[in-house]
Structures are given as structure tokens and as C-alpha cells.
Amino acid sequence: MNENYYAVLMAGGVGSRFWPVSTVQFPKQFHDMLGTGETLIQKTFSRLSKLIPKENILVLTNDIYNDLVLEQLPDLSPEQMVLEPAMRNTAPCILYATLKIKKLNPNAVMVVAPSDHWIEDEDAFLDNVQKAFDCALKQEVLMTLGIQPTFPNTGYGYIEYNKQDTNLIKKVSQFREKPDYKTAKEFLNSGNFLWNAGIFIWTVESVLNAFVKFQPKMYELFDAGYEHYNNPEEKEFIEGNYVKADNISIDYALMENAENVYVLPASFDWNDLGTWGSLHEKLGKDENNNAVVNARVFLENATNNIIRTDSDKTVVIDGLDNYIVVDRDDILLIYPKEKEQEIKKITAIVTKNQ
């Protein structure tokens, strides 16, 4: 394996739309959401370790999940953990991780990827990452993988590229915010829009140059601790300074400002597993389009439901269509799938009243 290849797994999210399975104490990336015997972060680590040396994979997460990550990824050493003492969105933590990698290997090329996404064809994914690595090593670019849209999704951001661009890797024209349904249909019909999956590839040098140019204060803040990184005094520096960073995403901080942004249209099937409905799409289903995880079920006049319980619970349902049924510990959720975006709001209310 190439010793210059690195990865940063983003594993700090809470996944509140997957409540009551995903909680602040135990988010969705640490669950076996697909019933495969592996948690989402385990699947992601395994996938990337086919291309990237295991010792070069860093996990970026909140410090409250440190023990959970090390328990689920026994091949990881504590030194590979990049711990956020405060939530500051994706730009500060990516900069922090990049400076740590630079100190280890200034010639590194890296992929930044979410730890909780579903990817069907892992070989195609690795081939795409390899192509992006090759491009990033040849020229100073900020690369991303864009997903071919299959329907007018209003829950994703979009990446627009020039229609006349016939190259495999395309120059990005602009990033577009999550659209309404009419606009999403227009994007789909245009043929030159891709879903933004939040997967980025660049050399350490390229992305740090972009931070210097577009986020100079943030760069100065983190670069001031460079001598401490990968040393015992790193923790004290980060705990004292991380909270001073702006709360901003990598898209707003760099990608929407830089001119050297390119996208490779992905050749693999992808799902961000952001909601119970998106999980329903990827699970096996019975003849009535019901998806079941763990439960033993007896179903009558039940269609288009997703049913998930702790192991081997028996669930009897009659006359339910297009619902989410989730039983975990002391919480039972029975909720219309069409209102799944509201689960995040419901979670906050229920948690506050408990």
C-alpha cells in the first residue's frame, strides 16, 4: 500500500433523525443499522483499509466517543483519534486533522469521508478514490466525489459542472444549496448536477494553501499549535483553543470560494442513510415492501413499513401503511414515514421532557 495515502473518517454526528436508535450517547455510526453484523463505522473503516494503510486512517469525532471508537475499531491506536472538545462544524476539525497529518507526512494525499454512509460497490468506490488521488497528486486541486442523482431529492446539496465538459473529472461551476422540489427536478433534467456526498480528496499542501487563502484566522489559530501536534501537549492546546474557531462547514469555508475545485461523478451506488426512509430503501423487503431489522414479525395488511427492534422481539402489525416502527429500550416510535424529517424536532421535545 502507498504510505502517502491517508484518510480522515468523520464520526462526530448524532444522527438525530434515526432516534430512538441513534442518540447523543450512542449515534448511528456505532450501530449495525443494516443488520449485517457490522456497524457503519466498521464497514467504512474496512472499506478504506483496502486502499489506505490502517495506521494512516484517522477518526475525527467528539471526545465523548473516544472509547466507543477504539472499542469498535480495535486496529486503531489512540494516536489515530482526532478529538473535538466542542462542536464547530467540519472546517475546523478537517484543518486540525490535516495539520496532524502534515506533521506525520508532508507528502500525504488524503480522503475525508463520512463514517455513516452506505456504499454498494466497494470496488467502484475505491477505484474512484484512486482516480481522485491520482488527479490531486498531479495538480493543486480540491476534489470531491459527486453522486449521480436518481430522483429530485430536496434533502441534498448539489454540485453543478459545465455541460460542455467532456473530461472524466469535471471543473465545478458552483455548489447549490438544498433546493425545493421544482428546482430539484430542473437540476435532474439538466444532466449536469450531482449530489454532494461530502467526500473530499486533496493533498495536504493543496488544502492547507486553501485555508491560508480563504480562512487565514482559522489557519493561524490551529497552526499556532503545530509544534504540539502528535505530542502529549496537543490535548491541552486543543482544549484551550478549539472553541475559538468559527463554526463553519468545509463547503462554506473553502469549496464555495476556491477556483480549483473538481468533481468526479461517482460510479458507485450511494445513500447517506440520513433517515429511516433512506434506510428502508437499502434493506431487503418482503412482498409488501416491508423492511425488517432484528424483529420476528406477524404482518396483516401491512405495507411499505420499516420495522426495527432489539434482537428477536416479536412484533404483530395489522393495517399499517408507510410507517416507521422502532422499539429500543424504553422507547417505542410509531411514526408516518412521510413525516420523518420531523423526528429530529420530536426527539428534542421528548428528550427535554424525560
Score class of each variant (00 low, 15 high):
residue 101 I to M: 14
residue 353 N to R: 15
residue 41 I to W: 05
residue 90 T to I: 04
residue 177 E to Q: 14
residue 157 G to I: 03
residue 211 F to V: 03
residue 324 I to M: 01
residue 38 E to A: 06
residue 155 G to L: 05
residue 83 L to W: 06
residue 251 D to M: 15
residue 9 L to A: 11
residue 189 N to Y: 12
residue 244 K to Y: 12
residue 116 D to L: 07
residue 202 W to N: 14
residue 59 V to N: 11
residue 219 Y to K: 14
residue 191 G to A: 02
residue 352 K to E: 14
residue 275 T to C: 01
residue 250 I to M: 13
residue 3 E to G: 11
residue 289 N to E: 12
residue 251 D to T: 14
residue 296 R to L: 09
residue 169 I to V: 04
residue 2 N to A: 09
residue 188 L to H: 05
residue 317 I to H: 04
residue 149 P to R: 06
residue 135 C to D: 12
residue 92 P to H: 08
residue 156 Y to R: 06
residue 264 L to P: 02
residue 320 L to C: 13
residue 24 V to D: 08
residue 28 K to M: 00
residue 304 N to G: 12
residue 310 D to L: 07
residue 222 F to N: 06
residue 168 L to G: 04
residue 102 K to L: 14
residue 3 E to A: 12
residue 141 V to A: 01
residue 327 D to H: 09
residue 79 E to V: 09
residue 13 G to I: 01
residue 17 R to V: 00
residue 180 D to T: 08
residue 341 Q to A: 12
residue 255 M to Y: 15
residue 192 N to H: 13
residue 242 Y to K: 14
residue 246 D to R: 14
residue 190 S to F: 09
residue 32 D to W: 06
residue 82 V to Q: 11
residue 290 N to L: 05
residue 130 Q to P: 05
residue 99 L to E: 04
residue 28 K to V: 00
residue 26 F to I: 00
residue 63 D to N: 14
residue 68 L to H: 03
residue 169 I to S: 01
residue 323 Y to L: 09
residue 229 Y to M: 03
residue 295 A to H: 01
residue 110 M to Q: 12
residue 31 H to M: 00
residue 162 N to A: 10
residue 257 N to A: 02
residue 250 I to R: 10
residue 264 L to T: 04
residue 56 N to V: 11
residue 8 V to H: 04
residue 269 D to K: 13
residue 5 Y to M: 03
residue 286 D to A: 02
residue 233 E to H: 13
residue 18 F to M: 00
residue 323 Y to G: 03
residue 119 I to Y: 08
residue 189 N to K: 15
residue 282 K to M: 12
residue 20 P to C: 00
residue 57 I to H: 09
residue 256 E to Q: 15
residue 278 S to R: 09
residue 253 A to Q: 03
residue 230 N to K: 08
residue 79 E to K: 15
residue 84 E to D: 12
residue 14 V to Y: 02
residue 319 G to H: 11
residue 89 N to S: 13
residue 291 A to K: 03
residue 45 F to E: 10
residue 244 K to F: 09
residue 67 D to C: 02
residue 214 F to P: 03
residue 335 Y to F: 12
residue 3 E to C: 04
residue 166 T to A: 15
